[in-house]
Design a protein around this nucleic acid. Structure first.
Length: 432
RNA sequence: GGUGAGGUGGCCGAGUGGUCGAAGGCGCACGCCUGGAAAGUGUGUAUACGGCAACGUAUCGAGGGUUCAAAUCCCUCCCUCACCGCCA
């Protein structure tokens, strides 16, 4: 959520910044609503103040021995006419406040100043390329062909059990997925200073509102039946970031570099609106595994933290020897709550292109304001909003795809990255 | 699922209808004391919104209700703890 004070101060500037990401902010509507809110506040508060002082006087009289009825009579008969008005006006004020709140909850974050402007993904800016895409002297196969011919991947059974966009994996491929998760968790906890955390895979509406999935993106989520308002998590970002919701951290709890959590979870996405996209294979599934990095930091640190966090995700690709490129998203391609985002795109020979495998974003205080995640700044002694960041480190399903396609050999077997050897009991090849 | 006890400020904890945003303590900040520290001691110390300010309003798990007036009484819900039942 944007800071309403900042919006008031410069609504036109906010609108201009939002326009760069393709969001239309109706300044006139905001101003009118805010003016109504203020008037409603003042009106209801005046009446409340009147009632309060009258009640106080009655209390004083009663304490002096005056009977309650006499005290009421003495203070004011008008109290009764006020009562009805108070109900009307406070309800009015509440309603306008709610409207303003709803408006603000639906406004995306402002892009960071250094984010390139652009309309969509075609205008994202490549920052770097790492590694050389291998040249194959045989007909390249995609991960589906490889996995199925090895008897390790089974889309038909997945769709029989659940439906389209579900997959079954067997044997060494299933094990490879487990190994990757283990490898990533170990790397981030041992080398990058993250604390492992285990969280619920089902969350409530408040958590989803905190990180920004609600109210706008309900259709992307799987909702559970029942009155609780439960949803399956679309990413570990939701439960892990919400650890900080409605919390006030002391400076020493944050440590020198803020709080860093690494978390493996399955992720569940409805993929509504992506009909026909990536229907083949494991690129776009309703259920996939991901290792997520989340940081809660002091505002002054968040810019550097995004660079570091992205580097932590890159390290995984480098150790797995997977060629990738790093892209900074332009204003038009930024996610709802993001202020700045790096996408890491891994080379997929089967698609002859780079495909997103990690998205690393900093949110500034946008999520923290929604969540009321704060820390006490020792310099001011006051609670201030934290900054939040997260990134995939990495999306495990897509890592599996990349390993299959980049490691393939002419005979249809797959060479596995040596760093995983210890996690695979010495297995270095997928051969079914 | 049943029964019982609870949910109050950064934390602990008083407060069962009136001048209570809330005693006291801890923590924290600034002073005094000290050669320096500890101990002791004094003062201050919630958040949000509105206002240049004085100040006003709201907030005692959430939502409704009673009342001139609710942290306090009533109803519903959520959560925590204890015991019982069931169970991976």
């Amino acid at each position: 959520m944007l800071d309403i004070k900042a919006v008031r101060r410069d609504p036109e500037g906010v609108a201009a910044a939002l326009a760069t990401r393709g969001f239309t902010f109706d300044v006139a509507h905001f101003k009118a609503l805010d003016a109504r809110r203020k008037q409603a506040d003042v009106d209801s508060q005046n009446l409340l103040a009147e009632r309060k002082s009258a009640s106080k006087q009655i209390g004083q009289l009663v304490n002096q021995g005056v009977s309650v009825d006499d005290a009421k009579a003495r203070v004011h008969a008008t109290l009764e006419s006020i009562a009805a008005q108070i109900d009307v006006l406070t309800e009015q004020a509440r309603q306008v406040q709610g409207e303003l709140q709803d408006l603000l909850l639906a406004v995306p974050n402002l892009p960071a100043p250094d984010v390139p402007s652009g309309a969509g993904e075609n205008e994202n800016a490549e920052v770097l390329r790492w590694g050389q895409p291998a040249r194959f002297d045989f007909a390249v196969r995609d991960h589906v062909a490889l996995g199925e011919s090895l008897g390790l991947l089974d889309a038909d059974t997945g769709s029989k059990i659940a439906g389209s966009r579900f997959t079954v994996m067997y044997g060494e491929l299933a094990r490879l997925q487990r190994a990757l998760i283990q490898f990533m968790l170990d790397l981030h906890t041992r080398e990058h200073g993250y604390r492992e955390i285990y969280v619920p895979y089902i969350v409530n509406r408040e958590s989803l509102r905190g990180t920004g999935q609600l109210p706008k993106f309900e259709e992307d989520l799987f909702r559970l039946h029942g009155e609780q308002g439960y949803y399956l998590i679309p990413t570990a970002e939701v439960p892990v970031t919400n650890v900080a919701r409605e919390r006030l951290f002391e400076a020493d709890e944050l440590g020198a570099q803020g709080i860093r959590y690494v978390c493996h979870t399955p992720c569940f996405r409805s993929e509504a609106g992506s009909y026909g996209r990536d229907t083949r294979g494991m690129i776009r599934q309703h259920q996939f595994e991901k290792v997520e990095l989340v940081q809660l930091v002091r505002p002054a640190q968040s810019e550097a933290a995004l660079e570091q966090l992205t580097g932590h995700a890159e390290k995984v690709l480098q150790l797995l020897d997977l060629p990738y490129r790093k892209v900074v998203l332009c204003t038009g391609d930024l996610g709802f709550g993001a202020r700045k985002t790096y996408d890491l795109e891994v080379w997929l020979p089967g698609q002859d292109s780079y495909r997103e495998i990690s998205s690393c974003s900093s949110f500034g205080d946008y999520q923290a304001r929604r969540m009321q995640a704060r820390w006490r700044n020792p310099d001011t002694g006051k609670p201030e909003l934290l900054h939040t960041l997260n990134g995939s480190g990495l999306a495990v399903g897509r890592t599996l795809v990349a390993i299959l396609e980049n490691g393939q050999r002419a005979d249809g077997t797959v060479a596995l990255p040596p760093v995983l050897s210890a996690y695979l009991g010495g297995v270095s090849t997928l051969d079914g």
